[in-house]
Design a binder for these strands. Structure first.
Lengths: 326, 326
DNA sequence: CTGAAAGCGCTAACAC
DNA sequence: GTGTTAGCGCTTTCAG
């Protein structure tokens, strides 16, 4: 390639990297040769030599969760603007898979990672920052020094719970994706739940708390469990940690002719695209996906350049969307 | 690292690549040194030298389409089994974006590509096979010599149309993602539609054909357009090219108090997870996602190894799922 | 402004 | 079984 253009490899390299100070004549010679040889830069060589990767890893637990799909979608669009390519990585809630993914940073495959899910403790993760920046996206962890972009899940959840209380609901069931002990955003929601229960003098019932719920199937199953309770022991509203859970719940109730919200009300989380289209349009809490994606990517890129990054929590507000399920 | 273990780099390389014939003592020495230095292989160097990539590109038009999400999800699981990592690439229906993605093959970033969407003509794509295998997944193109894994969309669609005819429907509206001229799977469905119209002696009405429909929003809009027709001119069933379109349609009709299927019936395509949960559970055509993913990945990997790959069309049947919207 | 030369970390050929 | 050597395609000094 260099010889085709009659210049040195150095000059070609400079051309490729947009260095200033190359004669127009050489530029043109290179362009012509590139065209003629159908040349493309070998990225492995570039990466090996420059020790820089063009890839940003985006870690989610599972892509089939539509919340993550939307988030990944926005992150990819944002990364592309800055010339980065994203690699979607799924951990499937598995700690070992997560470690393997983190190793991609160390291997030099990834320039940085945006973690939208987290399995290991923050310390396990922090050790990898040696190899590149790691951003926590939509995960608030006060114990960790990792850079974090998150919405105020605690406030948003509390506000929703307050709305439900004002609507007259008193028996709150609660579904969480975690185990109530984790420090993920599940934790923030749980803190809000406990606070609301306390502030509003409500009773908590062990039969109304559901752990490790993620999918539509989990929601259906939780619905079944509730219906098996003595009818006097039914909750009057169910706070679900995702619209998928809420959708599953809705399905079970509709099969059994339980009316929503009259018999039992349901509130979801995320505001999925289909949430307004369900048999009962879902009241839910919308997450600021666009802002989450935008700030995570730009924060990461700033870190890559050793620059500061500032953003306002204003952009990251949760929003209560009231429909017919409450 | 080599010197830490007291062996040559060659031996380390052999160890890493699971070559036979290394003394156990050296193996152990390497393992200990690896552990001690927290060593990981640099993938750029490996790739540069061996000219092999560990990445498989998966190209879809947009990840936010849940059909593609599920497909990508399965492809990733399947690729992982064989030790490959996938890179999700979105073309957003843009030919130029597609070319840029194809270039990743030429750059050596990707070992091969699974294309689940296609924008350019087959010829434009075939030239890239010089740099690595390209599989068309869920795209049937008889003009192209590219390896293809697809279900019989024409038969599946025709069968569904036959079912609708037998149910008594006679006025068929038709939504397509393409422009009716493309050779994508849209084409196969359209051929089936035209054949059914012909075979069953039905009338075609230009006001009942809708192009370039993809999203829930598109579906809502199409619903509005239909309702604006003189009521005598309404179709009695709408064939939609995705469950998203169908969901949008459903929404518009529910707002206007149009009963489904009594006033107008709807059939979807894909069988999304939420399709049974909508205000009217959707009759739809289920695609064989698992088989599509499995065969595409394994076909690609066989090609990478210069092996033959056989699979049976039996695995790739479309399935009519009858619910309440027809 | 441009080029020569060194070398990133690894694999493959060849020798022993 | 194991080591020596060359070189993948690029970027980065350092000279000029």
């Amino acid at each position: 390639m260099a010889k085709e253009a009659g210049v040195s490899v150095t000059t070609v390299s400079r051309f490729l990297n947009n260095h200033p100070y190359i004669t127009d004549s050489k530029k043109q010679a290179i362009e012509i040769a590139m065209e003629k040889l159908n040349y493309v830069q070998n990225s492995a060589a570039t990466q090996l030599r420059s020790k820089k990767s063009n890839f940003i890893g985006v870690l989610v637990s599972r892509l089939s969760n539509p919340f993550f799909t939307s988030l990944v979608d926005k992150i990819e669009a944002e990364a592309k603007i800055s010339g980065f390519q994203i690699i979607v990585l799924q951990s499937y809630d598995d700690k070992n898979a997560e470690s393997r993914i983190l190793k991609l940073l160390q291997q030099g495959v990834l320039a940085g990672i945006i973690m939208c899910s987290i399995e290991s403790g923050p310390n396990d993760i922090e050790q990898y920052t040696e190899y590149g920046p790691i951003i926590l996206c939509n995960i608030a962890n006060s114990e960790s020094k990792l850079p974090q972009v998150y919405s105020n899940q605690e406030q948003g959840t509390y506000d929703a719970l307050t709305y439900l209380f004002n609507q007259g609901y008193r028996k709150f069931a609660y579904c969480t994706g975690g185990s109530l002990s984790r420090h993920s955003h599940g934790g923030a929601r749980t803190r809000a739940f406990e606070k609301a229960i306390n502030d509003y003098n409500l009773k908590i019932n062990k039969n109304w708390i559901f752990y490790q719920s993620h999918t539509i199937e989990d929601g259906k199953y939780i619905g079944e469990k509730i219906l098996k309770l003595n009818i006097k022991e039914w909750p009057d509203v169910i706070f679900s940690n995702s619209d998928e859970i809420a959708a599953g719940l809705l399905k079970t109730f509709s099969i059994h002719n339980i009316k929503v919200p009259e018999d039992i009300a349901i509130i979801g989380f995320d505001d999925q695209k289909y949430s307004e289209l369900l048999s009962t349009p879902l009241t839910t809490i919308r997450q600021p996906i666009d802002a989450l994606a935008m700030h995570s990517v730009n924060y990461l890129i700033s870190l890559l350049k050793n620059e500061e990054y500032e953003f306002s929590a204003e952009d990251l507000q949760l929003e209560l969307v009231i429909r017919e399920s409450t």
